[in-house]
Design a protein around this nucleic acid. Structure first.
Lengths: 147, 147
DNA sequence: CAGCGCGTCACCAGAAAGGGTGATTTCGCC
DNA sequence: GGCGAAATCACCCTTTCTGGTGACGCGCTG
């Protein structure tokens, strides 16, 4: 997936560079085309900046949601986490499960497919020795995996 | 699925490049401008996509530790219970749900049929405005209905 | 007594969750 | 460069859960 990004950027840059270099040997009345290239680069920059700007807003939204009247000072028992072999992603899904979200809702928040959530959830249940998600939540709180 | 995306993007870039190269040998000022615009849009799109893609995983929940007084011993908020119109039996089933039991298991402990448990559970979900068991548990703890 | 709240139980359809398997990609490590 | 862990996604099948409807008995109360 990252290759696509690289290819896209490289291809775009090559085109821009080629155009700029080639047109330097041509007459100046092609300056319009150069402007086109410049515009392209400019828009690419604006696009990236825009993308960053937009996602930063999402982060801000997440901060607002932080209103958990949960236990005061919760500290995760990392030893337990390691002992159970829970991965960061699995812990993340576990927390969302405990928040009462459905697999579909978790999928939306975690930016993955519902099937992926099922897979993670399944592993969590397995590692916690639970048969249902309610049981997993109960055990997770007992073991201080979540707050 | 992913291949389609990759092919689509690559193909699009190729076409764009070919077109640009082709029209380089023509002297169509206006079309050059058009393609310049297209390139601009393309790059803007790629930029946005790139920005979103790269920063996507930064959308993490920032846990701002809120100072909350001691959790102390649990005392049921009877006012809430009354306000929600929860019956004693429903509270009982709610606690067993929170313990991670299935309807069948709850039925055994409460000495009633599974269908009865379903009915109680259904009313609990309704009164708590929850769509799922896990959500009901979450809300019940928030509202101090259960410990 | 009639009505009401509560608890009990049943049936059914659809949604959600869980179990199992296999596959791909990415990353770090040797 | 191969290898394993982690993450991703898909498909199929079973179990559990949820929603809606209906019904019955019991005890309390107007």
């Amino acid at each position: 997936m990252r290759h696509v990004l690289i290819y896209g950027v490289v291809a775009g840059l090559c085109v821009a560079i080629l155009r700029l270099v080639e047109y330097r040997f041509l007459v100046l009345d092609h300056s319009l085309e150069i402007y086109g290239g410049l515009v392209a680069v400019l828009f690419a920059s604006v696009g990236i900046w825009l993308g960053l700007k937009l996602t930063r807003k999402q982060v801000e939204v997440r901060e607002v949601v932080v209103e958990v009247p949960a236990p005061a000072n919760f500290v995760r028992d990392e030893a337990q986490v390691a002992a159970l072999g829970l991965t960061p992603r699995e812990l993340e899904i576990l927390e969302l499960m405990a928040a009462g979200l459905s697999n579909r809702e978790i999928a939306e928040r975690a930016f993955v497919s519902e099937n992926t959530v099922k897979t993670h959830a399944s592993r969590v249940l397995d590692k916690l020795g639970a048969a249902r998600r309610t049981q997993a939540i109960q055990r997770a709180k007992e073991l201080r995996l979540i707050g």
